[in-house]
Design a protein around this nucleic acid. Sequence first.
RNA 1: GCCGAAGUGGUGGAAUUGGUAGACACGCUAGGUUCAGGGUCUAGUGGCUGUAGGGUCGUGCGAGUUCGAGUCUCGCCUUCGGCACCA
Length: 849
Amino acid sequence: MQERYTPADIEKKWQLFWEEQSTFVAEMSSPLPKFYLLEMFPYPSGRIHMGHVRNYSIGDVVARFKRLRGFNVLHPMGWDAFGMPAENAAIQNNIHPAKWTFENIANMRTQLKSMGFSYDWSRELATCDPDYYRWEQLIFLQMFEKGLAYKKSSFVNWCPSCQTVLANEQVEDDGCWRCDSKVEQKELEQWFFRITAYAEELLEATNHLPGWPETVLTMQRNWIGRSIGCEIDFPVAGRAQAIRVFTTRQDTLFGATFMSLAPEHPLALELTVPERRAEVEAFIAKVKTQDKIKRSSDDFEKEGVFTGSYCINPVTAHKMPIYLGNFVLMDYGTGAVMAVPTHDQRDFEFARKFDLPMVVVIEPQGVLLNPESMTEAWTGPGHLVNSGEFDGLANDAAKEAIADVLERRKIGKKTVNYRLRDWGVSRQRYWGTPIPIIYCDDCGMVPVPEKDLPVILPTDVPFTGEGGSPLAKSAKFVEVLCPKCGKAARRDTDTFDTFVESSWYFARYCSPQATHAPVDKAQVDYWMPVDQYIGGVEHAVMHLLYARFFCKVMRDLGFLAADEPFTNLLTQGMVCKETQSCPTHGWLYPEEVVEGQCLKCGTPALAGRTEKMSKSKKNVVDPDKLIAQYGADTARLFSLFAAPPEKHLEWNDQSVDGCYRFLNRVWRLVFEHRHLVAAGGFEQDGPARNLRRLTHRTIRKVTEDIDGRFHFNTAIAAIMELVNGISAFEGKTTCPAVMREAVETVVRLLAPFVPHVTEELWSHLGHAEGLEAAGWPVWDAEAIVDDEKVIVVQVNGKMRGRITVAADLGDEEVKVQALAEANVARALAGQTIRNVIVVPNRLVNVVIG
RNA sequence: GCCGAAGUGGUGGAAUUGGUAGACACGCUAGGUUCAGGGUCUAGUGGCUGUAGGGUCGUGCGAGUUCGAGUCUCGCCUUCGGCACCA
């Protein structure tokens, strides 16, 4: 054994060992209970970053721990390989997206392997592989048959920079989630997945996911946005038509004095009287050009225009003028709102502006509302007035009563409305899964027959970067014979949103080589659902909602049995680092700052905020450099020790040093004791008993911290304490058996965190078989038992002393000794003792005064 | 505006059920080893106060419940995240 710890040599050695032994290949045939552990797979950008290191280090601890604890663990890895950066690289550097992607994958695979993660590499998949996306095309065809995939023309979010459509979830602050460009509205024919058909189940099931963080569930519930209310028909005056509105406030129906329609509402122009036509058309045109940022900002003024037509309030029979309002959204509810100015703030502002009538219909307790003097709408509770037969009812009760009456009279019905909208999946891009649909002039839209799958993405297309998808320009791809009639026809040239691939990859991992179906039923039902899923919280809505939706769709198509894909979810925090900048050279990489000065000009570097590591701010640390300098084990240990997984991790070079020093210390500890033979049994008294107690306490603590709690930082701290305890024990006495056990325990407990160095140390401790064979240590309940206990003594809640007594000493005797403690006795001198509280085995509190 | 999470030494963070606040680590200080540096080992390290035993203050701010509050309740401040004209 070498005296010095040299990570480079030993890490390579053990990575090779695991690969040769197929240590991490998962088999369904195992008699052990299954455990499916999954981390979100990466986009092959070319290099792994510290976020990956953290995510996959967390996952690897759990995977290795579960293996040691006797589970049959599935821990796969693959590549979310379709997406825009590959296409951009093609345009900018004239390299084919496929070549670029596979080179990146090769590089990142090497990097991940150098971290020593326990993946079953035999299951590796890349979503850009036809063997993967062909099954996605098949699922799509079956969804199409069932009406779960459909095409419609609609206004869509368009990113002018990416030249493609974005789903609502992919628009952040009116900017593109990927490139931040301002999103525009564009009318296009698009494919949609009917996720709204699953809105209720997706929402309801959030109540049965106890293993998910509450924040993520709340975000998903908000996103689905269920609201209960009524649809009510308002007849148009002088016509046979009616306008249908959605409202959650049917209790205010008697106060509805006008109607607001979305400018895009189909009846908008139809209801406009000729003399107002020019004004209305101008208004509609204006709203369409207003970008969403302004339209949705707080201070944006409510604007509107009168159509000249009226409708009838079905319960009061009053005429209500019909307006178009810029604040009415066509894609929520019915695109029409019954306006109750007294009890809705927007309607109030609108009514004031256009001098429209107001009627108070809810009277709060102790407040008299007067339409003339009101300065804002009353949206709180109260009792109904001016509401005919419903007067006097509490407005809560009136909601039910009015809804019932509307249903009986057939002018309205109770409905549930969702904020969630169908998922638009067409993208005008090349590097994605082709949509298997053919357009024939005679037969219309024809699905590609299953036997003709996959529709393969052609490789010989031009990348100009100018307007539209390269696929549309490839005659070889577009021109096809209609599968129905055999005449010349055209393929769909759009590709799927890349979130489609990541919506079912977890199922494919169960049987990645299946050649007859997307998944092998027996395999997928054995492994699914994922027992523990780990990834960034930034996917709380998009990816995690789509994946849940797909799981349910695949269930209903008969591919698998699971209702939900992920039983437990851990969302890890971001990796952050202080930014540094120079007044003349802008953001600086860490290596561009030497002794606090800009390397280029010598100006003192300015320390900025601590933010998420990003290339644009240059506050990044390259995992490769970290591995080269300290080894993978140190990189893993730091990312696990510096913060609990769900919190942000703040980068600190010195703390990395500390982790490296700790591993060196463990190395020296084993080096010194490598020949120690566990002879003579365990001494039952004195320092030996104390060390053995510490050893077994540490086993218990580390086990409990990892299992379910994921408190890796405190688990590692406990192991450090054991190491400190061993050092303190040295020289006091010698009990080889206890010492040997303590040293071996350090190695075994560290194994899930730093697998290379521990395997190496384990072998130097004379074990022919690896740590895998040793399993996870078990604590001896007897060894943990205390001989003594420390009792804290308080006087009026303030700590005044502590006493050490025999562990089995009774409460009464503890009390006597507590009162006799010197410092306590001094505090009590001349005082009247009112009460003495004894908390068994913990503390005594003397109440005086 | 609404919803949610967080706020603890110089720093990252502990404190699992209301019971010793600051585990563990970084940093810093002193000393040993070393020609020196690095490494390593030992001791110390929340503020104020006292020669010392000790005292006193202290978990964003203010109240409250309790023998006892970082932890529970109420109000406020700050930061971060999500949603945001959703009828």
